[in-house]
Amino acid sequence: MAYDTQFLLGLYRQMVLIRQFEERVKFLFLEGVMPGTIHQYQGQEAVAVGVCSALEAQDVITSTHRPHGHALAKGLSIESLMGELFGKVTGCCHGKGGSMHVGDLEKGMVPAIAIVGGGVPIATGIGLSFKLRQEPRVAVCFMGDGATNEGAFHEAVNMGAIWSLPVVYVIENNRYSASTPICQTARVERLTERAHAYGIPGVTVDGNDVLTVHEAAQVAVERARSGAGPTLLEAMTYRITGHSRRDPCLYQPEEERKQALAEEPIGRYGAWLLAEGTAEQAALDQARAEVDAEIEEAVRAAQAAPAPAPEAALEDVFA
């Protein structure tokens, strides 16, 4: 498929934005200036960017305990994310949500759901609303490999299937749920084999190749939008950072990590852009410098922003 250069460079910039955002956040945590806990997205950038680049602004995503990449890819501003991580009023949830619940429905992202599997029925319900109102919109449910072992996953994918809802269920298979390897908790070779049980297509792709993800997502999104029903899309990837704050990843074999680092999506895509002659190194460097500057500005703004008044905790319980 032929893509225009702007689009291809845009994907690169988005992935680098997520990577640099996460690296900066990691550092802020280690410095002890950022509160709470974090689950980071380094290594999986091609999934969020590949999928979200196949969506329209009015499409809606659900996310997980590891939501920063999804949020940036769906168009939430760096400021509103950074503000939320710092627990400031400028955050996308006014400091009420925190890292595991970032989101903004106006941008098409439900506040992230940190109960593993909890988002699958919700995305299905969003798809149902689109169908009932005959809106040409699509719901995308991001989940980890581990989520496919929750009952909620099975109940919800089945409902999406029987009602032919406009939903794309995206499994980011990074091979681990926390410290547990997926091969220890699922007998099937590919998690998309589970799609057969519900009578929907299941597609497994290289999740570290942003264009492959993008193309597979486009097919699934088109199918959903046309009324043909959901797809189970599995993107094979790897988390090249800890599961959460302060995880030394001792359960990951050394060789496997090395391999994963060699196959991480940004280096791969950057090399491809250079090899294809789509971009010069200078353009890639510039993209990185630009996002770094934007991130620094967001950090500065978030640190300068006011903390919420303690009593604000009492607001927003009901409409």
């Binding site: 509160p35 400031k88 949830c93 009420k96 008044a309 303690p310 905790a313």
Partner: peptide
């Protein structure tokens, strides 16, 4: 605690 879900931001959690 007050009858609210648990808030994230440290000053609000402390208040909770």
């Amino acid at each position: 605690s007050p009858d609210i879900p648990v808030p994230f931001a440290p000053p609000m959690e402390e208040f909770y």
